[in-house]
Simulated assay, not measured.
Amino acid sequence: MKFLGIDGGGTHIAASLINESGDILKKIEIETGVNLTSVDQERLKRIISTVKAKTTEVDGIVVSFSGAGTSQRKIQLLDIFKEIFDIDNIVVYNDGESILYSLFKGSSLAIVIAGTGSLIIGMDKDQNMVRSGGWGHLFDDVGGGFWISTRIIQEAFRFRDKLREFDPIFNLLLKFYSCENIEELTSLQGKKDFKTIISSFTKKALEKPTNLVEEIINEGISDLTLRCKKILDSLGINDLYLSGSLFKSEYYLQKFQEFMYNYSLHPSNFDVSEQMALLARKYFLTE
């Protein structure tokens, strides 16, 4: 028997194929964003079909997708996977739920995800979920990569309109996107993969933070950590798992730790697609 785990995020989709013994048979990664809040259904079908073409027949799939935070989106994604893979043994989680189920050992726990977007989600000992944030790039995701880059771009336009002083990050911004002037940044909104493209600047901005970047990071992390504390207090726990690409930035992680100095933080570096494959094996392995 073979089992597939899929991790779909704002910048890429990764898949792991394992056998019934848990051995890795194949790893797949496609560099394109698949967050359900910003990708249309037909494009999503093409991407998932590409994953299907790179795998053999499978006996079970567990999917972890950012943006799959509502029952409607889960059903939409489940229907697409059933159509393309032609099996019924499929479970769909959002990116926070999937990690919680992988880490759950019978006690309450919580995780914060800071990647393209942001989300804080927890689970009590009875597996009841609590969450804060992660409501999509238009309404929330404060402290995530897309939000940080967007805030920098907003301030660049404020500088262009003579509403604020210059910051060196504006020159780096123009160079990064090969723009001659700030006005040309408006074209980013029309890109098909705009969420991935815009959020990609955050990694560069965090390498040598300017005064403006520091202000924006403090603003975002202040909001994000307040949400974390509310979730942890509601669960009566002190430990928080960290996941997502932003925690790979030494600067971002340090700032986050400063805001959460009274709590125990645990970076989680496991491969999500592999963990989803192992969950699929657990759920669907038959004698």
Results as ranks from 00 to 15, higher is better:
Met1Tyr: 04
Ile6Leu: 05
Ile6Asp: 00
Gly10Lys: 04
Thr11Tyr: 05
Ile18Asp: 00
Ser21Asn: 15
Asp23Pro: 03
Ile28His: 05
Asn35Glu: 10
Asn35Ser: 12
Leu36Ile: 07
Val39Ser: 09
Lys45Trp: 01
Lys45Pro: 00
Ile48Arg: 05
Ile48Val: 15
Ile48Asn: 09
Ser49Ile: 11
Thr56Asn: 13
Glu57Phe: 08
Val58Asp: 10
Ile61Tyr: 03
Ala68His: 03
Arg73Glu: 12
Lys74Tyr: 02
Gln76Asn: 13
Asp79Glu: 14
Asp79Gln: 13
Ile80Gly: 01
Asp88Leu: 03
Asn89Phe: 04
Asn89Tyr: 06
Ile90Asn: 03
Val92Cys: 06
Asn94Asp: 15
Asp95Cys: 05
Glu97Thr: 12
Ser98Trp: 06
Gly106Asp: 09
Ser107Met: 06
Ser108Tyr: 08
Leu109Phe: 01
Ala110Trp: 01
Ile111Pro: 02
Ile113Cys: 00
Ile121Ser: 11
Lys125Gln: 12
Arg131Lys: 15
Arg131Gly: 07
Ser132Gly: 09
Ser132Gln: 12
Gly134Lys: 06
Trp135Pro: 08
Gly136Ala: 10
Phe139Gly: 03
Asp140Ile: 02
Gly144Pro: 09
Ser149Tyr: 05
Thr150Leu: 02
Arg151Gln: 15
Ile153Pro: 09
Ile153Val: 12
Glu155Cys: 00
Phe157Thr: 02
Phe159Asn: 08
Leu163Gln: 15
Asn171Phe: 07
Leu172Gly: 15
Leu174Pro: 07
Lys175Val: 09
Tyr177Asn: 10
Glu180Ile: 02
Leu185Ile: 04
Thr186Phe: 09
Gly190Leu: 01
Lys192Arg: 14
Lys192Ile: 10
Lys192Val: 12
Asp193Thr: 05
Ser200Asn: 09
Thr202Pro: 05
Lys203Phe: 06
Lys204Val: 13
Ala205Gly: 08
Glu207Pro: 09
Lys208Ser: 12
Pro209Ser: 07
Ile217Ser: 06
Ile221Ala: 08
Asp223Lys: 15
Leu226Trp: 04
Arg227Met: 12
Cys228Leu: 11
Lys230Gly: 07
Leu232Pro: 10
Leu232Cys: 09
Asp233Cys: 01
Asp233Ser: 13
Ser234His: 10
Leu240Met: 09
Ser245Trp: 00
Ser245His: 02
Leu246Arg: 03
Lys248Ser: 10
Lys248Gly: 10
Ser249Leu: 06
Ser249Gly: 09
Glu250Lys: 15
Tyr251Leu: 13
Tyr252Gln: 10
Phe256Thr: 12
Gln257Pro: 00
Leu265Lys: 14
Asp271Leu: 06
Met276His: 08
Leu278Ser: 04
Leu279Ala: 10
Leu279His: 04
Tyr283Asn: 14
Leu285Met: 12
